[in-house]
Design a protein around this nucleic acid. Structure first.
Lengths: 204, 204, 204, 204
DNA sequence: TATGAATGAGCCTTCATTCAT
DNA sequence: AATGAATGAAGGCTCATTCAT
């Protein structure tokens, strides 16, 4: 194809600049905190001028929101894709847990931004939960409801409650991980969480 | 009354003002967010001059930390006291969950501060989890370990992991509650959380 | 009187600070222009910290507006007072012209602010003319109308038109004066303006 | 047609773009004010890229100065041309007044730029009065001096003073017009101004 | 103790101008 | 000639904290 011939190389630097800045923002937010971070720092880290940031993002807030949006969109898309191949309800939950913790465990700075910096204010949080986070919780809830419909999960547990518990447990794993001094693989927590979520702690 | 006997003189005006300011801070932090709140606002709300705040607290940060400290100390003390009367491990967890959610459900502003404003930065969070929060998680972990020792809980689940899951689930309930538009009793979530934590979602 | 006894000295420094800043603003606006002037410059000139300016004025704009307001209020008050002693319509116009030019001629910086800096934008000008300037033109118009009612001035000339011409002529004197390199007494232009305004340039 | 003979070839595209940009600048300066206007706005309005403006003008200031220069040059040329056909000194002044107000009354945006935006700072104004404005006032002064030489005007009035009064009056008409909410024909003020300037307001 | 006026460091954002294409 | 992405200097304003009273 002509287009392929004309552009066999990776996309131009322009396309990168958006991502470049977002990555720089992740690092700086993680290091200094959202309020402690200066836009100038982010620009410097991205190797662009301060003003350039504003060619790609409306404001400092927009950087954080974009970061969240991009990551959540990826997470949901990846989650949905992975689940299509899995039939067993328990295995599906295990998959979600694993992807969740792997994603954050792969990039500690991103994890810090997600577990700490994004929770700056009610205004921020309300805005965030109203959108992508709702979708993400919905993904979990649907998986649970599906398991209930298929007789794998107890129906007495409201699916929404279950989703919150599941998400809350994973969230806490991530938060503990970034606050911990010890360096361990976050994803290794997945199985334990799923085990408790499925079978509870009670002795049979 | 015993309480009167233990404290026959009225609390000094100082103590009052200390609490007065801390309460004002709770309201203002909840309304405006930590960074959006001005010390002058808090002072006005407390009915004192701006400078007076600094006679009782070292800094704006100190207000937030004191708020956390006071509340956690109460929670731990109350939790420990309540647990002494309860023998059954499952009932003990139920008690913790209920107290946790009741405490936050009683004061929405306090809940907002705890669920949102306290998570300002890694620096802050690290500092907090290193102290009271560790104690609180310890309380849960010990309760679980005790249940395991007594054969009520499965020993395969690491007690620390269980504690994080339990806390994470409760935490998520609280966060969802403050972000929700619907007005419901937060404490009502306690039983559901405990049920799932004890028995899991899997069908028997 | 007690009050006089209790406060025989000039008003406290607080009252001065308002004026102090306004005077500094006059100098700096005149030297650098409104947009060229930095609030920090004004503060420095007034001998206060930059933030202090904002304890007395809402914004940089407010400085300019307050300057205008204070001066116009003085001018109108002074004009009204002076006119009560004068009966002859021509003499009244002469009095207005003289006061107008004397006031500006006395403080070149103030004149610059009035003739140049205040005319920054339609927004500004519209706001200004809507208030004090309208009163000032009204003072002139009434004086003319009064002269007409008393038979001293031709009634064919609409009083409002006459007021604009009179004011426009004085205004141009002031503008020319501040732009001129030569140093002359601005007030000396008053008689010439009044003469032409009263009798015209036509040969009898 | 003579005009066609004098200019047989169409104006080069460059000249068009020059005028295009200047017209766009007039609109945008009038709407947003000089400082509020962005060069990018002007470029967009002119249908060119931001950088293109700088192929035709040295700077944003240069746009304003060119606007002034072009208009004043036209005004002076037109004024001189019109005066050659008129002999009577009073009629000449009437002609100048009418042309002055007609020119501004024809294009409200241009009027706004002339009456408001051009008066940005002493630096600006000094620069402007030193050139074309001086010529324009000279045109008026010469007309008055000529009238005096021919016995039509009183010689006691210094011609320069008369010119300033005349210009100041016209200027004030224009300023009032653009600030007025009512929509009236600015040029209609010309006769009134000339009448007062010639005969004064005093009753005979 | 209490006050609240004063301080001044700190930062996001804008936008005129440039220059590689 | 024309583009428009990139630059980076610049400054109004806020607000935690101090301190003279």
């Amino acid at each position: 194809m002509p287009r392929t011939l004309r552009m066999p190389t990776p996309p131009p630097a322009d396309a990168d600049k958006h991502i470049l800045i977002l990555n720089a923002a992740t690092r700086v937010f993680a290091e200094r905190g959202f309020f402690g971070a200066q836009v100038a720092d982010i620009a410097r880290r991205a190797g662009v001028a301060a003003g350039t940031v504003y060619l790609y993002f409306k404001s400092k807030d927009d950087l954080l929101i974009s970061l969240f949006d991009r990551t959540m969109q990826d997470a949901i898309r990846e989650g949905r894709a992975a689940l299509t191949d899995i039939d067993d309800p328990s295995a599906r939950l295990r998959c979600i847990a694993r992807l969740h913790l792997e994603r954050l465990g792969r990039d500690r700075d991103l994890a810090i931004v997600f577990q700490v910096e994004l929770r700056q204010s009610t205004k921020f949080m309300a805005r965030l939960s109203a959108t992508r986070l709702r979708d993400y919780l919905g993904l979990i809830r649907d998986t649970i409801a599906d398991g209930q419909a298929r007789g794998a999960f107890r129906s007495q547990v409201p699916a929404t409650l279950g989703a919150k518990i599941f998400f809350g447990a994973l969230d806490e794993m991530a938060t503990n991980w970034i606050l911990s001094d010890r360096h361990y693989a976050l994803a290794d927590d997945a199985d334990g969480v799923v085990d408790v979520f499925l079978h509870g702690v009670s002795a049979p």
